[in-house]
Amino acid sequence: MPRLPTPPTDAAEAAVPLAEQAYRRLRQSIVRCDFAPGQRLRVEELSRQFEISSSPLREALSRLAEQGLVQAFENRGFHVAPLSVAGIADLTRVRLLVECEALRDAMVHGDDAWEAGVVAAAHGLALVEKRLGDQAPVLDESWSGRHREFHLALYGGGTSPMLNNLVGVLFDNAERYRQFSARHRKIKRSKNAEHQQLMNAVLQRDADTALGLLRQHISGTERNVVEALISMAPGTLQ
């Protein structure tokens, strides 16, 4: 049974349009693997679970389908997108193209405020990792949130809103794979050193080193996910 989605907790969040609330909360549940890959998402059941009417939920599901987290089938409704070896390989290929370009753009155009935001995001992430100790960080919601903030902060100095929006969509797709992988990984992957090295290279505007580290970081996620997928269904994945 999926965890109950977190309802709005303050007036500002409650003022957000219902379709946006539905989108944020459903995206969060899908990304953290509360719903199984391929599971059908019945609007009437989601409406009861999220306490949101069907119209905003349908709008949210359509938006998530455009972003690759949900699949829409004629006459069969909405389903959580599957996880596969082919899927993570394709996602990694696109992430390498898009995120490397976004980081390159940020290093060229980022200002002092951007650098300060990167440092602050890295510090916030490190604090959570210190608190967690030997726990798998990706399964902690506070770590996942700060991890996302750190990576998006890296790209925040860029000049293309469309490129940065695409980075966010790809990151969420990758996060679902990371969440799945962490649940079935035998060896914990520590990312703290990777994040610190990446931040240092970015702040030094050392493009060759920073882009090399980013490629390793993204490719490392693919390796871990593939191992987890194969361990769950040996011989059945493409």
Rank of each mutant, 00 (worst) to 15 (best):
M1I: 06
M1Y: 06
P2D: 03
R3W: 11
R3K: 12
R3E: 08
T6F: 06
P7F: 10
D10H: 12
D10Q: 11
A12N: 04
A12M: 07
A14Y: 11
A15D: 10
A15E: 07
A19S: 14
E20S: 10
E20R: 12
Q21V: 08
R24F: 13
R25I: 04
L26V: 05
L26A: 06
Q28C: 04
C33K: 10
A36T: 05
A36I: 01
G38Y: 04
R40C: 03
L41C: 09
V43S: 02
V43T: 14
E45P: 01
L61E: 01
L61T: 04
A65K: 04
L69P: 00
A72Y: 08
F73L: 14
E74D: 12
F78A: 00
S84F: 04
V85T: 15
V85I: 14
V85P: 02
V85N: 07
G87H: 03
T92F: 01
T92W: 00
R93G: 13
R95M: 15
L96R: 13
E101T: 09
A102R: 05
R104F: 13
R104M: 11
D105G: 05
A106R: 08
W114T: 08
E115G: 10
A116S: 09
A121R: 07
A122G: 13
A122S: 14
H123P: 03
G124C: 03
A126N: 09
L127Y: 02
V128C: 01
L132R: 09
D134E: 13
A136I: 15
A136C: 11
S144M: 07
G145I: 00
G158K: 03
T159G: 07
S160P: 01
N165E: 15
L166N: 02
V167C: 15
V167I: 10
G168H: 00
D172I: 00
A174E: 10
E175T: 10
Q179N: 07
H184T: 03
R185D: 14
R185W: 04
R189A: 14
N192Y: 03
L198V: 05
M199H: 08
V202Q: 13
L203E: 13
L203W: 05
R205D: 09
A207W: 00
D208F: 01
A210G: 01
A210Q: 02
L213R: 11
R215K: 14
R215C: 08
Q216M: 14
I218K: 00
T221F: 11
V226T: 12
L229D: 00
L229I: 01
G235L: 05
T236G: 00
T236R: 15
T236V: 02
Q238Y: 06
